[in-house]
Structures are given as structure tokens and as C-alpha cells.
């Protein structure tokens, strides 16, 4: 019974037409929820959370930095999974997803790098440190750029998506290896011993706004992916009957 439901869900969400209907129903309430959650988290964190006893107010950038980093990482992993589904099971919706996930993820990676650098100046005394996390993020950005560049270089949209999907699959494995190898290279060269605030000891008054702004960022990411996927669906299926009907009915 459960298995059948899962299987039906897979097939339904795998159909671009069903996804379009589904997202039409979800977006009107998901969009405001995402915006409100994000704004609440950010405003609470930036304006009302208590200052850090060591770093003062400069630590507040984590309310942007951490959500951006987590979203960027999750986005790439999601892209790799979509890539696997597209390459192995040839699911059309997965191809569309690969294209929809990449731009926001790349933007989040860039935001994470910039905020990390801004945070680094008061904490480390320099904008850039080749520490394990910053380096991994930089490489993640390169890998996002690779996926987007490959996608743009291939004219046929389905072929482009499948090629990008394969690259993202390989990339996910690489992300994991890069993380460990970059940590290893830091021990080899005895790099900076400056550590950030221990995350386990974070004050709850600082933690809740962080969790909320993370959730808000993820929801915004989801909204962005849905909107992009819908555009891509319309452009791909523009010759099919249901899109023509949709256009004739005024787009809703």
C-alpha cells in the first residue's frame, strides 16, 4: 500500500505536467511562508540576538553566512541526486531540476564566500584564509560554475541537462573527497590555529534565529527551484496540448 503510494508519487512528480499543477497549488502559500521565515530569522539575528562576548556584533554575519553555506551544499547534493535520476532512469523532471537548482546554489556559494571573507577580517585579521571550509566552498563554487558552463555550452536542452547531471554526480563524490583532503593539507602545513566560535556552545538566544534563517533560506531556495522549473517546463513543452490550453486560458 505504502509502496504503491510512493511509486505513484514518483511517477506523478516525474511528469512535468503534474509537477506544474502541483507547484501551482503549492507556490501561492509557500512563497509568503518562505519570505516571512527568512525575514524573521534575519531581522531577529541581525537586530535582536545578543552580541557575542568575544566578537561583539561582527559575529552576526553568521545569520547570512551559515544559511547560505548550508543551502549551497544541499543544493549541490540535490543536483547530484537529480543527475543520477536523470542519467540512470531518464526521468524528464530530474533533467529540469538540474537546470533549476544550479543558479541559486551558485549564488548562495558566492554569498557564503563573500560573507565568510567579511567575517574573516575582524576575526582572523585577513579577508582570506586557506582554511578547510573556505577552500572547500571555493571549490564548490568552481564546481557550480562547471555545471552551469557545461549546460550553457550544449544546445539541446535535454542533452545539456543530462551532461550536467553526470558532472554533478561525479562532483558530489568530489565534494566529499575535497573536504577531507583540504582538512588534511591544513594539518600538513600547520595552518591557522584560529578557530571560530565553538558551535556546540552556542547560546540558545543566538541559535534560534540562526535555525529560523536557515529554514527561511532553504524554503526560498525551494521556491526559486520551483519557479525556475516551471519556466523550463513551459519552454520545453510549449508544443504540447496542455501548455497551449494553459496559454489560451490566460496562464493560470
Amino acid at each position: 500500500m505504502l509502496w504503491k503510494t510512493i511509486k505513484r508519487g514518483y511517477h506523478q512528480l516525474g511528469s512535468p505536467r503534474y509537477f506544474y499543477r502541483f507547484s501551482s497549488a503549492v507556490l501561492p502559500w509557500l512563497t509568503p511562508i518562505a519570505l516571512i521565515t527568512f525575514v524573521v530569522g534575519i531581522v531577529w539575528g541581525l537586530a535582536f540576538a545578543p552580541p557575542d562576548y568575544q566578537q561583539g556584533n561582527s559575529y552576526r554575519i553568521i545569520y547570512i553566512h551559515v544559511p547560505a553555506s548550508s543551502g549551497a551544499l544541499m543544493g549541490y547534493v540535490a543536483m547530484g541526486i537529480a543527475g543520477m535520476v536523470a542519467v540512470v532512469w531518464r526521468m524528464k523532471m530530474a533533467e529540469i531540476m538540474i537546470k533549476a537548482i544550479a543558479p541559486f546554489g551558485a549564488a548562495l556559494t558566492a554569498i557564503s564566500l563573500v560573507t565568510g571573507a567579511l567575517w574573516g577580517k575582524p576575526t582572523w585579521g585577513t579577508y582570506w584564509q586557506w582554511d578547510a571550509r573556505m577552500t572547500s566552498m571555493l571549490i564548490l563554487l568552481f564546481m557550480y560554475i562547471g555545471v552551469i558552463a557545461l549546460q550553457n555550452a550544449i544546445r539541446d536542452p535535454r542533452q545539456a541537462a543530462r551532461a550536467a547531471g553526470l558532472l554533478a554526480m561525479v562532483g558530489v563524490i568530489n565534494v566529499v573527497i575535497v573536504k577531507y583532503s583540504v582538512e588534511w593539507v591544513n594539518t600538513l602545513h600547520q595552518g591557522s590555529t584560529l578557530k571560530l566560535v565553538g558551535e556546540s556552545t552556542i547560546n540558545p538566544a543566538m541559535k534560534y534565529p540562526l535555525l529560523i534563517s536557515m529554514l527561511g533560506t532553504w524554503l526560498l531556495y525551494a521556491v526559486n527551484v520551483m519557479v525556475r522549473a516551471r519556466t523550463e517546463i513551459l519552454s520545453r513543452e510549449r508544443r504540447s496540448g496542455w501548455v497551449k490550453q494553459l496559454v489560451a486560458a490566460g496562464g493560470r
Binding site: I139, F142, M143, I145, G146, A149, L150, A153, L167, V170, G171, N174, I177, V178, S181, V182, W184, V185
Partner: peptide
Amino acid sequence: ILLAVLVLPLYIPVLIF
């Protein structure tokens, strides 16, 4: 040049070790 953009990030672990 596209090949370089795709492949160089994947080369990093091998380079490091």
C-alpha cells in the same frame, strides 16, 4: 577551455595528496 573548467576542480584531491 571548457574541459579545463569542468575538470580542474575534480583534480584537486589528487593534486593535494
